[in-house]
Amino acid sequence: MRYAMAVDTKKCVGCSDCVVACQTENNVPIGYCRDWIVEVTDGTYPQLELEIRSERCNHCDNSPCVRCCPTGASHYSKGGTVLVTPDECIGCGACIASCPYDARFPHPDGHVDKCTFCLHNRVEKGLKPACVSVCPTKCMYFGDLDDPNSEVSVVLKKRKWKTLIPEAGTRPQHYFLI
């Protein structure tokens, strides 16, 4: 099993509903977030191009954060998701420095926090991650890449996609439809 997410940059309007849904579902402390919206403007007026992306942890196959964690708190879990065990985390910050996507942050309780793909609280109960389930434009897809009929496998077969900084060698599992 290999969980992955895809975001359609052509449909995303950047409403930030996914951000708020995540904060609510996961009790993310006020002032922090596990996912966020990036707007990229390319070119000069009037030749402008806009890309909107809903970003979060890329749950990489080759995660630098798991590699550099001195206690094993950062680990691979079910379906290749990358999780942090708060009781093993010493808050050294190595994983935060090691993430090329800056997807991790220090939780006020001391441990490091990040996107979990809502693995324990939703996905294992058969629900979609909070961000995917609330998206008003239905631009987000989640599922198992090993299952050719999952919605994420189907959409990645149909559409052109990219991942963020694949040259960093992390093998990210968060796809962007372009």
């Binding site: 950047g14 930030s16 977030c33 996912d35 919206i37 990036v38 707007e39 403007t41």
Partner: peptide
Amino acid sequence: ELIVSGRMN
């Protein structure tokens, strides 16, 4: 490149 949602971690 702009982060428009509240990513002020």
